[in-house]
Amino acid sequence: MSRSRSHAPVPVGLLEALAEPLDPGYEAVHRVRSTAHAARAGSSSKAPGESKASGESGEGPRPDEAGAVRPRPRPGHVAGSLAVGLVIGLVLATSGLASDRTRSSLRERRAALVERVEASQADVDALTARASALRGAGPTAADSRSADARLAEAAGAVPLTGPGLVVTLDDAPAALAPAPAPDAPGAGDAAESGRIVARDVAQVANELWAAGATGVAVNGQRLTATSSIRFAGRAILVGYRPLARPYEIGAVGPADLAARFEPRGGVYLDELRTAFGARVGTAAVARLTLPAGTLLDLDHAAPAPGAVDGPEQWPRAPASPATPPAPSPGETSPSRARSTPVPTPKGSAS
């Protein structure tokens, strides 16, 4: 019965646990039990395996069952071992189920992640394909030429034709009569207040830009990024060229330019008319042509030595300025200012 129990007593700790894995209680109980039997029946050769579920020997021998080789189990011990077995099974099953749950949730998360990775991979593929396609279809010569054309229009380098709006400003009639006698006392304020000044022209031009105009010209003077609307005494200067009344401000823009100009520019014109008696008018034109600007000269840039040719439509020759369609009277010899233009308060948008 006690085969393979020939281990010598081994030291403490883990080694003890290694050497004596079986709970010593089993051995002790068994020893008590077998000595009791030996003393009782004299036969110490009890078959192994028959002694299970016998708790009586541990409690002490019972005289009335003296000859019994197989003692009857006590109900308290039966219930206890049943409960312990039940607990053990419960623990094992619960643990297994918990790990199973964890594993399945991990599997779900992994599947979701794989899905995301695959979706991202598809995105990357699509974007890569699109990028290579776009790289193949880079900017062509036609594109750059049209870009040049757009830039030239925006810069006022070329004439501009399209649907437009013409705003006419003129001095009030009261301002015209005493014109020859500006120094007459008393004639002053009423007459001067009815006169169109540079600020009015600039304001209207700004409102036109804000309304979406792509090109604005005042009396045939195209406004560019370097144009200025200034005054010198009573004269209004655009690009250093004096203007004569009436002032016609033409703008080319979207088809609804007049409607877009009305909410703010129209109010300004109304105020000019009602408060100062100025003569104002607007006229939408289906096809309006603005001349090219005249202040387009290169100050610092120069063509590259190996350059084949520049944009041929640029008015490079200073001797042939673009002719305005409606030359202002009295402007016979335009003097082209080549100095650095004064920054203007001309608003470009909004």
């Binding site: 079986l22 709970d23 089993y26 109980v29 002694s51 016998s54 708790g55 206890g80 071992s81």
Partner: peptide, 22 residues
């Protein structure tokens, strides 16, 4: 479980020891 199983095979199994030791 394994201790009890071994005790059974050794022929020294005891309910009481099983319960108490667990």
């Amino acid at each position: 479980v394994f201790g009890g199983l071994r005790a059974v095979l050794d022929g020294v199994f005891s309910d009481r020891v099983f319960v108490v030791s667990f």
